[in-house]
Computed example of a mutant assay.
Amino acid sequence: MSDQREVAVVRWPGRTPSAGAGPAELLAAYHLTTQAEKGEAVAGVEDLPDRYRVEIADPRTAFADDVVLLALSGDSAVGCLVVTAPADGRSEVKRLWTDPEFRGSGIASSLVGAVRLSVWKWRAGAIALYERLGFTVTESWDERDDLVCMERAL
Rank of each mutant, 00 (worst) to 15 (best):
G14P: 10
G134V: 07
E55W: 07
L32H: 02
V9M: 00
D75H: 06
V7S: 01
V115P: 00
S118H: 11
R116A: 14
D75I: 04
W12Q: 08
D88S: 14
F102A: 08
A124G: 09
I56R: 03
T34G: 10
R132E: 10
P13G: 09
R15T: 13
L133Q: 11
W120S: 03
A29M: 12
D145C: 01
I127T: 02
W120L: 13
V45G: 03
R95D: 12
A108T: 02
R5E: 11
I56V: 11
L48W: 03
V83W: 06
K121I: 06
R60D: 11
A108G: 11
C80T: 15
V119F: 04
L72H: 07
Y30V: 11
P59M: 09
G104M: 05
G104F: 04
R60L: 09
P13R: 11
L72T: 09
V9Y: 00
S109F: 00
D145I: 00
R116S: 13
D50N: 05
F135Y: 15
L72K: 10
R103S: 02
G106D: 06
H31A: 14
A87H: 08
G79L: 07
L69G: 02
E40M: 08
S109M: 02
G106R: 01
V54G: 02
D145E: 15
G20R: 08
A77F: 09
S118A: 14
L111A: 13
W12C: 10
V67H: 05
S73R: 08
K38R: 12
D142L: 03
E92V: 12
D58E: 09
V9T: 04
E131Q: 15
R103L: 02
D3K: 05
C80S: 12
V112L: 11
W120G: 07
A87I: 10
A36N: 06
C80Y: 03
A64H: 09
A43F: 00
